[in-house]
Design a protein around this nucleic acid. Structure first.
Length: 645
RNA sequence: GCCUCCAUAGCUCAGCUGGUAGAGCAACUGACUUGUAAUCAGUAGGUCGUUGGUUCGAUUCCGACUGGGGGCUCCA
C-alpha cells in the first residue's frame, strides 16, 4: 500500500500502482468525470499513469491553469492529427498550450493553408474528438525516436530529439497520430467538445529570425460548447475597447500615410487628454523633488558614441542628418539620458545636492521594424515621461524605493491594479550583448531585487530582458486583447556615469562617480494613453475626459443661457461644449452618450427660470435638476475622490 | 524585416462568375423650435490605395509597391 496526500492534507491509502483517476473516483464520481490531469508531487501526470510510491496528488480540472494547459496541449495534438489527415506529408514543429488556447507550428511544404480552411479542419478535429481516442504514453529510446521520425522525414522533430537525453523520451499516440511529447495528456480526445481555430501566422523555427519560417495555427477548445460561445463573445467585447478603434471614434489621434508610418498625430481631444496626464505627473514629480528640463530633439553623433548607443543601435536606427556645409552628423534622439548627462555636467556637483532628479517629457524617435508597429503602443516617435536621477551609491536603494512609490501612485490613480512587476536581468549566457563590468551589473541587479522585495512587489524575473546598459524593473499591463505591454520602467545604470565621466565631490573632498537611475512611470505617453483607453473603454475618469460636459439646450431660445452656463464652468476650469444644433433634445443626448461625455447638462425653460441645469450622467441617466454651483461642487468632489483614493 | 490576410465616399459596409459603382451615418441647404439615446426633405461627395500587366473592356483576374490587421523576430 502507498500513501497519497491530498491538497487538504488528508492522507489516503491505495494499492501500489494506483492511478490518479482511481484516486479521483474514490473521492467522487463527479470529480472523476471532470478531472483532466493530476499533479503528482511536483510534476503533472496523465491520469492513467500508475503511482508507485507515496506521493502528494492534486487533481486538476478545467478550473486549474495546469488542467487547462493539459486540455489545450492535448487539443494541439488533435489539431495535428486533423492536419496530418487533411494535408498528408506535412511536418510538425512544436504544439504547446498558450494563455488562451494552443498552437501548432507546421511546415506545409508545397501545400497552402489559410483561414478559408479553418472550417474543414475544425470539423475534422471534432470528428476526432468524438472518436474518444485514448492518449497512450510510451517511453522510447533515443534511437527508436530518431528512427521513427527519420522514417517519417520530420526534420523538426529530429532537431528536437537531438537535444533530448536518452531515457527521458516519450511518445504519445492518439488514433493514427504519434508525437514526440513530454505530456501529460487528457485520458482521451472525447473531453474536447468545442473547437475554434483563431488565426494563422508565420513563426520562425526555434524563434530564429534567420531560420525557416513555419505556419503557426492558433486554436482554442473547450469542454462545453457554451464556454466557447462565451469566450468568443468576450473577445468581441474586447475588440470594442481596442484603442485604435476608440481613438478614431472619439477623435483622439490619427495616422497619416503622408506623415509616415508609426508617427501618431494627436487630435485636439487626444491632446487635451495627454496634457492632463502630463499635468498630473508634473505635479507628482514636483512633490517628489524632480526638476523639469528641456532638451532638443537631436544630438550629435559624438554624444551617442560616448553613450554607447551608436555602437549598439547606430546601424539599426534612423540614419543621421547632416549639416549642409560642414557635414556634421546629428541623430534624432532615441532617448534622453545622454542629454541629461550633459546637463548634470554643466558644473561641479557636491554630494550635498545629490540626488539630482532631472525630468523631461522628451519626444524620441526610434526606428522600429515596420511589422512591429501597432496603434499607439508601438510607434516610431513618442514622448517618454523620462527622468534621470543622479545619486550617491548609498542613495540608490532609497531612490529606487521612492520611484516604485511614484509608479504605483500613477498606476493606482489610473486604475491599473492588474499589472506584472517584471525584474529584467542580463542573460548570463550572452554577456557580450551588454556593456559594463560584471561588478556593476551585479550591484545593479542586487539593488533592484532588494528594492522590489522590500516593497513587497510580487515579481517575475526574466533573464535576457535587461537593457544593454543595465537591469530594469518593468511594470507590464495587458491590453484589451490580452497582449502584455511595458508601461512603467525603472533602471539602474552604472555605465553611463562612467562613459560620461560624471562626478561629484564627496565629503572627503575627493571626486566620486554618481549612480544613475532611469525611470518613466508612464513609459511613453502614447502607449500609456492606449492602455488607459482600453482599460476604461473610452469612458475616461472625469479628470482626464477631454469633454467633461455637454450643455444641451432644449431649443434655440436657450442658447444664450447655455452660453452663460458654459462661461461659469470655464471659470471653474471645467471643460466642455454647447450643442446648439437645431436638433431635438433626444438627438443631442444620444450624440453626447455616443461621444462618452460624462455629464450632459440640459437647459430649457425651467432651468433658465431657476438658474439651474438638469444633469444627466453618461451611462446612468437623469440625476435631476441642480444649480450650477451645486453641479460644480459635485463635479469637483468626484474628481478629488478619484485622485485621492 | 519575415509569413499571412486585407484595402470601395469623412465613417461603417454592399457590389454573383470582368461590361467604369450603391446604402446607412456624417457633411452641406431648407423646413421644424423641440424635455432625457437618432425630426423630415433635398444637395453634394468616389480616376474603387498606387502602379504595371492580361483583356475589345479591370473596382473585379495576375504582379509589384504603399498602407493596415494577425503573428514571428526585434524593442535603448
Amino acid at each position: 500500500m502507498i500513501n497519497i496526500t491530498l491538497p487538504d492534507g488528508s492522507v489516503r491509502q491505495f494499492e501500489q500502482g494506483v492511478t490518479s483517476l482511481e484516486v479521483a473516483q474514490s473521492i467522487s464520481e463527479g470529480l472523476a468525470r471532470n478531472v483532466l490531469a493530476a499533479k503528482v508531487n511536483d510534476s503533472v501526470w496523465d491520469l492513467s499513469r500508475p503511482i508507485t510510491e507515496d506521493a502528494r496528488v492534486q487533481l486538476l480540472t478545467w478550473n486549474d491553469d495546469l488542467g487547462k494547459n493539459t486540455f489545450w496541449h492535448s487539443s494541439a495534438h488533435i489539431l495535428a492529427e486533423a492536419l496530418e489527415a487533411l494535408y498528408p506529408g506535412i511536418k510538425f514543429g512544436i504544439g504547446p498550450p498558450v494563455e488562451n488556447g494552443f498552437y501548432y507550428d507546421v511546415d506545409l511544404g508545397e501545400q497552402h493553408f489559410s483561414q478559408d480552411d479553418f472550417a474543414k479542419v475544425e470539423q475534422k478535429m471534432l470528428e476526432l474528438a468524438r472518436s474518444k481516442s485514448e492518449f497512450e504514453r510510451r517511453e522510447v529510446s533515443k534511437a527508436e525516436a530518431v528512427a521513427y521520425f527519420e522514417e517519417k522525414g520530420d526534420q523538426y522533430k529530429l532537431d528536437l530529439i537531438k537535444d533530448l537525453e536518452d531515457g527521458t523520451i516519450t511518445f504519445y499516440t492518439q488514433g493514427n497520430f504519434v508525437d514526440l511529447c513530454r505530456g501529460p495528456h487528457l485520458p482521451n480526445t472525447g473531453f474536447v467538445k468545442a473547437v475554434k481555430l483563431m488565426n494563422v501566422a508565420g513563426a520562425y523555427w526555434r524563434g530564429d529570425e534567420k531560420g525557416k519560417q513555419l505556419t503557426r495555427i492558433y486554436g482554442v477548445t473547450f469542454p462545453k460548447q457554451k464556454e466557447l460561445t462565451e469566450y468568443l463573445e468576450r473577445l468581441e467585447e474586447a475588440k470594442k475597447r481596442d484603442h485604435r478603434k476608440l481613438g478614431k471614434e472619439l477623435e483622439l489621434f490619427t495616422f497619416s500615410e503622408k506623415v509616415g508610418m508609426g508617427l501618431p498625430l494627436w487630435l485636439p481631444k487626444g491632446t487635451l487628454l495627454r496634457e492632463r496626464l502630463e499635468q498630473f505627473l508634473r505635479k507628482a514629480q514636483q512633490r517628489a523633488g524632480y526638476q523639469p528640463v528641456v532638451t532638443p530633439h537631436i544630438g550629435s553623433k559624438e554624444l551617442y558614441i560616448t553613450s554607447g548607443h551608436y555602437e549598439k543601435y547606430g546601424a539599426d536606427s534612423f540614419q543621421p542628418i547632416r549639416t549642409p556645409n560642414e557635414g556634421e552628423e546629428f541623430f534624432l534622439k532615441p532617448m534622453n539620458c545622454p542629454h541629461h548627462c550633459e546637463i548634470y555636467k554643466t558644473r561641479p556637483r557636491s554630494y550635498k545636492e545629490l540626488p539630482v532628479r532631472l525630468a523631461e517629457f522628451g519626444t524620441v524617435y526610434r526606428y522600429e521594424q515596420s511589422g512591429e508597429l501597432h496603434g499607439l503602443t508601438r510607434v516610431r516617435g513618442f514622448t517618454q515621461d523620462d527622468a534621470h536621477i543622479f545619486c550617491r551609491p548609498d542613495q540608490v536603494k532609497d531612490e529606487f524605493l521612492k520611484v516604485i512609490d511614484l509608479v504605483l501612485y500613477v498606476f493606482h490613480s489610473l486604475g491599473f491594479e492588474d499589472y506584472t512587476a517584471q525584474i529584467s536581468l542580463r542573460d548570463p549566457e550572452n554577456k557580450q550583448k551588454y556593456i559594463g563590468t560584471d561588478e556593476a551589473w551585479e550591484k545593479a541587479e542586487t539593488a533592484i531585487i532588494e528594492a522590489a522585495a522590500e516593497k513587497g512587489l510580487s515579481t517575475v524575473t526574466e533573464l535576457g530582458e535587461a537593457a544593454f546598459y543595465g537591469p530594469k524593473l518593468d511594470f507590464m499591463v495587458k491590453d484589451a486583447l490580452g497582449r502584455k505591454w511595458q508601461l512603467g520602467t525603472i533602471q539602474v545604470d552604472y555605465n553611463l556615469p562612467e562613459r560620461f565621466q560624471l562626478e561629484y565631490i564627496g565629503a572627503d573632498n575627493q571626486k566620486h562617480r554618481p549612480v544613475m537611475l532611469h525611470r518613466a512611470p508612464f513609459g511613453s505617453l502614447e502607449r500609456f494613453v492606449a492602455l488607459v483607453i482600453e482599460h476604461c473603454g473610452g469612458n475616461f475618469p472625469l479628470w482626464l475626459s477631454p469633454e467633461q460636459y455637454a450643455i444641451l439646450p432644449i431649443s434655440e431660445k436657450f442658447h444664450d443661457f447655455a452660453q452663460q452656463v458654459k462661461e461659469l464652468l470655464e471659470q471653474e476650469d471645467i471643460r466642455g461644449y454647447v450643442d446648439n444644433r437645431d436638433e431635438k433634445i433626444g438627438r443631442k443626448i444620444r450624440d453626447a452618450e455616443v461621444r462618452k461625455v460624462p455629464f450632459m447638462l440640459i437647459v430649457g425653460e425651467k432651468e433658465q427660470e431657476n438658474n439651474a441645469v438638469s444633469v444627466r450622467k453618461h451611462g446612468e441617466g437623469d440625476l435631476g435638476s441642480m444649480t450650477v454651483g451645486e453641479f460644480t461642487g459635485m463635479f469637483k468632489a468626484k474628481i478629488a475622490e478619484a485622485l485621492n483614493k
